[in-house]
Amino acid sequence: MASLAHALLLSCLAAFFASTLQGASPSHKPKSLSTPLPRNYKKVLNTIDSCWRTGSDWAANRRALADCAVGFGQAAIGGKNGKTYVVTTPDDDPINPKPGMLRYGAIRTEPLWIIFARDMVITLENELMINSYKTIDGRGARVEITGGPCLTIEHVSHVIVHGISIHDCKPSKRGLVKSSPTHVGERQGSDGDAIAIFASSNIWIDHCYLARCMDGLIDVIHATTAVTISNNYFTEHDKVMLLGHNDEYTADRVMKVTVVFNHFGPNLYQRMPRVRFGYAHAANNRYDKWQMYAIGGSAGSTIFSEGNYFIAPDIPNAKEVTKREVNGGWKSWKWRSSKDVFMNSAYFVQSGYGSCAPRYSQAQSFTVSPGSMTPALTSDAGPLNCVVGEAC
């Protein structure tokens, strides 16, 4: 599949560079910016999407998705080896979930591939604890999780969340929450993140819409590692993505996260991502006019920005892509930029010496395209409108 993906990308390069871009956004997304973008927008399937989107049999072969991740979360298999569980109701019960509820499937101990019987808006009564070896797959339905606490991935592995809109999440109150078929524990209350990932590994968040939550949109903390965050659409939020708990939590040195093919849309302020201690590879992401900064960090973090498309805001003192959350001592941190495109006077302040490459395994590796390709590669960020019997 990887060779097919690379071939598709290469075949599109000539056509793309001969053309210019002008993007049409799906109805749930804000209109494109008036700032200069390459014109005559030609959609290009990125490495992940070309792995599964070209066939019309996706609904009968959903588990093929689990073979398509790249980067540090490539090994996440979710519920690939389990049965299919169908969510039939938007109702929720955090203590005694019933069959048909999302929570009933998410907390099971066995692997499950979770799908949805129809469009639904789910308002959770308390944070949703997702157990290991689960895929939450929104393809074929319009699924929103909104208006209450949202997703928690804690002390687990092999979780895939795909094709869900998660927005307007709120903090939860202290209370009992079931996290497995045999365990109900008292939770202290979640912060209001869209997706909070604690002490977990092999996690893949793909093609989601995330906006307007009370805390962060995605938090990756407490020594979580082997994560890929891809093809998501972020908008209308302050603190977007946190990688690393705090400046004292040295266990986050093991953290490795790939942030790839995402569209950081209008009305975002900061943290796309903000990194502490660990390593982040941000590749082929589009950034539309952040209000404070795009990529930041502290605590000796390592950041490789590669092939991104940065459109600076019109705010004169917010043109810099980067922000070090420290008064000094950061010049040895490895923060590098390669193949990035900088628009509207955007600029990246580099630092450090020596190699900053992600050192992916052969299975994790992928070709990073020049930044000029990124608007095309991210044109379908967010949930897809997949129709049974047709290619997505």
Rank of each mutant, 00 (worst) to 15 (best):
171 P>N: 04
174 R>K: 15
173 K>R: 11
165 S>W: 02
180 S>G: 13
169 C>I: 04
153 I>Q: 11
162 H>G: 00
175 G>R: 07
160 I>E: 11
152 T>N: 12
187 R>E: 11
192 G>E: 07
140 G>R: 06
148 G>Q: 09
178 K>A: 14
188 Q>P: 00
151 L>F: 12
151 L>P: 07
153 I>H: 05
184 V>I: 15
157 S>G: 01
136 I>L: 15
180 S>L: 02
179 S>I: 15
137 D>Y: 07
151 L>A: 01
156 V>R: 10
168 D>V: 00
144 E>N: 11
181 P>S: 06
149 P>C: 11
175 G>S: 11
152 T>K: 14
167 H>Y: 14
187 R>Y: 12
185 G>T: 10
161 V>K: 03
154 E>M: 10
156 V>W: 01
155 H>W: 09
160 I>L: 15
141 A>Q: 11
161 V>R: 04
142 R>E: 12
194 A>Q: 02
140 G>I: 08
178 K>Q: 15
170 K>M: 13
189 G>C: 08
161 V>D: 09
166 I>M: 12
179 S>V: 15
164 I>W: 04
178 K>D: 08
182 T>G: 04
138 G>Y: 08
191 D>I: 00
141 A>M: 05
166 I>V: 15
167 H>C: 00
136 I>H: 09
159 V>M: 04
149 P>E: 12
154 E>K: 13
183 H>I: 13
135 T>D: 10
157 S>M: 10
172 S>Q: 03
174 R>Q: 14
165 S>K: 13
191 D>M: 08
174 R>C: 00
175 G>A: 08
165 S>V: 00
136 I>V: 14
183 H>Y: 04
159 V>F: 06
168 D>S: 14
187 R>G: 12
169 C>V: 11
163 G>I: 00
175 G>Y: 09
141 A>S: 15
165 S>Y: 02
143 V>M: 02
194 A>W: 03
143 V>S: 04
175 G>F: 10
146 T>R: 13
176 L>F: 10
147 G>W: 09
173 K>Y: 00
135 T>K: 08
167 H>S: 03
180 S>D: 13
136 I>T: 11
158 H>W: 05
161 V>Y: 08
190 S>M: 01
137 D>N: 03
137 D>Q: 01
142 R>L: 08
186 E>V: 14
135 T>G: 07
173 K>A: 14
184 V>H: 06
160 I>Y: 09
153 I>T: 05
150 C>Y: 01
142 R>K: 14
167 H>P: 00
189 G>Y: 02
160 I>G: 11
148 G>K: 11
148 G>S: 09
169 C>N: 04
143 V>F: 04
151 L>C: 06
150 C>G: 00
184 V>F: 06
159 V>T: 05
148 G>A: 09
148 G>R: 11
154 E>N: 15
154 E>H: 11
194 A>K: 02
175 G>C: 06
176 L>R: 13
193 D>S: 15
193 D>Q: 05
176 L>Y: 12
159 V>Y: 05
139 R>Y: 05
186 E>N: 14
164 I>F: 02
146 T>C: 03
172 S>A: 12
172 S>V: 05
194 A>D: 14
189 G>I: 05
150 C>D: 06
182 T>A: 13
162 H>Y: 05
146 T>K: 14
187 R>Q: 09
142 R>F: 07
137 D>H: 01
169 C>T: 06
145 I>W: 03
179 S>H: 07
138 G>N: 02
182 T>D: 15
192 G>M: 02
176 L>G: 00
190 S>F: 01
155 H>S: 15
180 S>E: 03
191 D>N: 09
